[in-house]
Design a protein around this nucleic acid. Sequence first.
DNA 1: GCTTTTTTTTAGATTTGACTAAATATATTT
DNA 2: AAATATATTTAGTCAAATCTAAAAAAAAGC
Lengths: 220, 220
Amino acid sequence: MNYSVSEENYIKTIFHLQKKEGTVTTNELAGELKTRPASVTDMMKKLKAKKLLHYQPYQGFRLNNDGTRVALAIIRRHRLWEYFLAEKLKFTWDEVHEVAEELEHVSNKKLIDKLDAFLGYPKNDPHGDPIPDANGKIESGKKIRLPEIPLHTPCIVSGVSNQSGDILELLEHKKIRIGTRLEIRKKFDFDESLEIKTGKQTITTISRQLAENILITHEA
Amino acid sequence: MNYSVSEENYIKTIFHLQKKEGTVTTNELAGELKTRPASVTDMMKKLKAKKLLHYQPYQGFRLNNDGTRVALAIIRRHRLWEYFLAEKLKFTWDEVHEVAEELEHVSNKKLIDKLDAFLGYPKNDPHGDPIPDANGKIESGKKIRLPEIPLHTPCIVSGVSNQSGDILELLEHKKIRIGTRLEIRKKFDFDESLEIKTGKQTITTISRQLAENILITHEA
DNA sequence: GCTTTTTTTTAGATTTGACTAAATATATTT
DNA sequence: AAATATATTTAGTCAAATCTAAAAAAAAGC
Ligand SMILES: [Mn+2]
Ligand SMILES: [Mn+2]
Ligand SMILES: [Mn+2]
Ligand SMILES: [Mn+2]
């Protein structure tokens, strides 16, 4: 039950890609992992042999129960480390991912459970994504994209669906982060940009592309 | 300037073995790393090609300046994580090494320097070993073995020279740890065992083997 | 429905790190 | 100084993870 860094990166990425569509293709996975399709096929054969996923040649693949369990353990490690880096070591929002990408592969269970306790069992990572608990349970969290929120409805940012450095830099600049309260003031049909109010009297305009990547939870 | 996990483990181990003798042999290193002499020879060629050590076939090897610099960076990471695990996550003395053995290979400089700051720039790891600073400077720390301390001289434990689980378990049982004040009450010639006083009125006897692995610093 | 394009898989090569068995160099005895 | 024993290196394999180029399958276009 111990997997190599490569295997773990493949497993985690399949998990994330699956969420959108039911099944993941060779090209998608190669693109995401910045590797070649031929390498993906090789690894899929290996992960199938280890009984972590369903795979028939040319038919795409998806994690089975065991694979999902492994993926959630990796995601738990990743997000706990992100929380630690942001909260304790004062890394900024957009720096944590890269470092957590390495730390997630240290897979000592006791370490992670003690880290979890030390951090006070946080529910979400710095990007607002839910942290699976020690049993792999993860909050569903039905999130809505900002453009779907009606005008003049106060709401709270709970995550971003794209986590590139570029978007995080922009959000940082506009002081929009997890927990930020905001409200839509105007919707412009021309380019679908939004004028929003953050804080007491800060008004700013955000593009459609940005708004679509800002996730909101409803209770607020 | 980025090294694989294997390369780092070799470099670190050479550094530790060097301290005792000037030069390290193939067999010593193979024994320490639980690998085969042939594998050691292969790796020595690689590390020589990367200009990290002096090596002539059959003549043993030792790190050069660059190799030493790399080793100290690894040791810094190892000991800072050990301190974190013991101090923040409440791991016991004898559990930290194994976990740090993995964490030490996450070599993000900013991570380590922020961790150092978060921990308050500790000087020593939980075993009393000095932690190199961000520039690779390490405290010399002229340590004396317990048997060399005269009778009835109060002193402070500052480290253990053997860090197997077995010895740490024994020290834990006898409540001897870094910072423990103690004093030798009697030396028995028969088996060279020592009767020592720890705390106000605790008297215990320790074997020659144990005493030789308990390190003392003089200021106390 | 056949042709063309795209996707995926296979075949074959490379790199890293490890191993065993054999050869060679060094150290120790006699 | 040989002979023997020990230590070290070399030669040849192997498994993991990657790659390029070619073949095969599936999808899209006409
Ligand atoms: Mn990773
Ligand atoms: Mn995250
Ligand atoms: Mn290590
Ligand atoms: Mn230590």
